[in-house]
Design a protein around this nucleic acid. Structure first.
Length: 589
RNA sequence: GGUCCGGUAGUUCAAUUUGGUUAGAGCACCUGCCUGUCACGCAGGAAGUUGCGAGUUCGAGUCUCGUCCGGACCGCCA
């Protein structure tokens, strides 16, 4: 074949007169009868090539067969384009290649969708023909940026004396947390490996081994349902450090993020990332990952309704719940129907009815105004600082749940009202997380982060007496309302680890069975250590502006966890199952 | 596991609130013409199991039920 001397993004005026060879795909063809133009594409760019029957009639005849997405090789001479026919939209737009040799390397069937940007095609079709979708600039650019990000991260980590170590993909199942993907063992029927939810235990053990500063860009697997920012397999930048406290890990992380923004976006971040406690995040933003690109904070009115005429709110207030809400300036578009849709939204998230008030010429209006006394109305107006045309949405109920629903409503309203400045980036550390959260289904407390997270020293004496009040030495990095990284200072002593397992209602036997290897390691001079893990795919989403995690992963799964291109997961032969000692049971639908 | 939205030529959509003649259009595709286009242009053409399966009806793209697939969300994601 004719091998390329240049890529389709290389040639400029300076190359005029040179004899060159290009390889690429036919992006577009324009047959003028006496002259054929082809836009030839590779991942570097697009170059126009011209077939002229007077230059070479045989080639010209051959070129008439060219269609979209044929792969070809052409040799020819670089020409300046005639006066007035340059294309300023192309970096190669001042030149073209006059072809004197054409080789069709492979024809192409008509593609199921056009290979161009801003196409509007069903996700299903794009995923089935992923190799075609990946030819589009948008996805190419995403993956090229992703590739650069690997490099930036590795450079930064190596420059800061971190050691890159691979940990096993086949490991022991530790079913605290997410559901494991299991891999049956052929050698030991009835036993299973698990794919790592994260290399957590391995990296802690590497600290025990003295590796001091570890990192890895690593695949993690969680068998849970998907979202637009969640895939069952995803990539983390996994980091662990010895002889450190929270500030050391956060500082390394901040500087990594700053290096990334500098290298990828050429943006200097010259401030320290602000910190916010979990409590404040929940109270003001209804989220543990507040989007601080806009204000619209949650306002609290529990005390206003405590002894008032609206019995529902009064009862909630007296029983320790909250009454809180969001105030927006209505541009006149919030009619009854729109408010009803907001209400449906709240209800679909398990919330109660959404109460609302409107300020109209100094008067408070709304369906529950009639239950309120004069002093309550005045107090509400005053505390909410209600001005004319302000709309106030209120929700009452159990604290955490109510605030979370308001947090979701806050994001929704911000989108509706166009409050989010897409060009702004906000960085935030959320700290002082509670150690535990209550698991309604299992009626017990579970670790909010993971069971190896150290409690805060000040709360240590309440581990047994008041576990719900114990805060963790954990920290999350939030960028534009996305949880980008999360980590903690770990427990490095066996006795404390054992106390925490007991606090989590994990018996000594169970702890030994599941995590005995880790606790054993803690008994041999485990140094104080802590770390963090970044969601690599989410970082790429942030940096590319991708709307879905599928757009930053080469071969993603659908929201029902299927791979449409290759058909995974698939059935396997009885022989394969027999070898593994397995029997497949069909799911009865 | 649940809720909502969607599935009609290759593709993106349409098909009169309320079931009724031969299911239309843009792009793509095919044929012909065209020497400066780059969203080339002009003329013509082909293209449909309305996701699948039942049901209601004289009659179903349209209504009902089931099912599959895509998407978003809730649960889940230590």
């Amino acid at each position: 074949m004719l091998k390329r001397t240049h890529t389709c993004g290389d040639l400029r005026k300076e190359n005029v007169g040179q004899k060159v060879t290009l390889n690429g795909w036919v992006k577009n063809w324009r047959d003028h009868g006496g002259l054929i133009f082809i836009d030839l594409r590779d991942r570097y760019g697009v170059t126009q090539i011209v077939f002229n029957p007077q230059t070479n009639h045989e080639n010209y005849e051959k070129a008439q067969a060219l269609r979209s997405e044929f792969v070809i090789a052409v040799s020819g001479t670089v020409h300046v384009r005639p006066e007035g026919s340059a294309n300023p939209a192309l970096s190669t737009g001042e030149i073209e290649v006059a072809v004197d040799q054409l080789e069709i390397l492979n024809p192409s069937k008509t593609t199921p969708f056009e290979i161009k940007d801003n196409i509007d095609v069903k996700e299903e079709l794009k995923l089935t023909y992923r190799y075609l979708d990946l030819r589009r600039d948008e996805l190419q650019n995403n993956l090229l940026l992703r590739s650069r990000l690997y490099s930036v991260v590795r450079n930064y980590m190596h420059a800061n004396r971190f050691v890159e170590i691979e940990t096993p993909v086949l490991m022991k199942s530790t079913p605290e947390g997410a559901r494991d993907f299991l891999v049956p063992s052929r050698n030991y029927h009835g036993r299973f490996y698990a794919l790592p939810q994260s290399p957590q235990t391995y990296k802690q053990i590497l600290m025990v081994s003295g590796f001091d500063r570890y990192f890895q860009i690593v695949k993690c697997f969680r068998d849970e349902d998907l979202r637009k920012d969640r895939q069952p397999e995803f990539t983390q930048i996994d980091i662990e450090m010895s002889f450190v406290d929270e500030n050391d890990v956060m500082s390394v992380s901040e500087n990594l993020v700053k290096a990334i923004y500098k290298e990828i976006k050429n943006t200097d971040i010259d401030f320290d990332f602000p910190r916010m406690t979990y409590e404040q995040a929940l109270m003001e933003y209804g989220s543990d990952k507040p989007d601080t690109r806009f204000d619209l904070k949650i306002q609290h009115f529990t005390s206003v309704f405590e002894s008032g005429g609206f019995k529902t709110f009064a009862r909630i207030a007296q029983e320790g719940g909250v009454v809180a809400g969001l105030k927006i300036a209505d541009d006149g578009s919030y009619g009854r129907a729109k408010i009803d849709r907001l209400n449906d939204r709240v209800k679909s998230q398990g919330g109660p009815g959404l109460a609302w008030f409107r300020m109209n010429s100094g008067n408070l209006e709304g369906p529950i105004v009639k239950f309120l006394g004069e002093s309550e109305k005045e107090e509400l107006k005053k505390q909410a600082n209600l001005q004319d045309n302000d709309l106030l949405f209120l929700l009452g109920g159990e604290k955490e749940k109510t605030l979370q629903i308001l947090g979701n409503l806050r994001l929704h309203l911000a989108e509706q009202l166009g409050l989010i400045d897409e060009n702004k980036d906000t960085f935030l550390w959320v700290v002082d997380f509670p150690m535990l959260e209550y698991d309604e289904d299992e009626k017990r407390y579970a670790a909010r982060h993971h069971p190896f997270t150290s409690p805060q020293p000040a709360d240590m004496d309440r581990l047994e007496s008041e576990p719900a009040s114990v805060r963790a030495r954990a920290y999350d990095l939030v960028i534009n309302g996305n949880e980008i990284a999360g980590g903690s200072i770990r427990i490095h002593r066996r006795d404390l680890q054992q106390r925490v397992f007991r606090m989590l209602n994990i018996s000594d036997e169970e702890a030994e069975h599941k995590f005995g290897f880790l606790m054993g390691a803690l008994e041999y001079g485990a140094p104080p250590h802590g770390g963090i893990a970044f969601g690599f795919d989410r970082l790429v989403m942030m940096l590319t502006g991708a709307r879905s995690i599928r757009d930053v992963i080469a071969f993603p799964k659908t929201s029902s966890a299927l791979s449409l291109m290759d058909g995974a997961p698939s059935t396997v032969s009885d022989a394969q199952l027999r070898e593994l000692g397995l029997i497949a049971i069909k799911k009865d639908n």
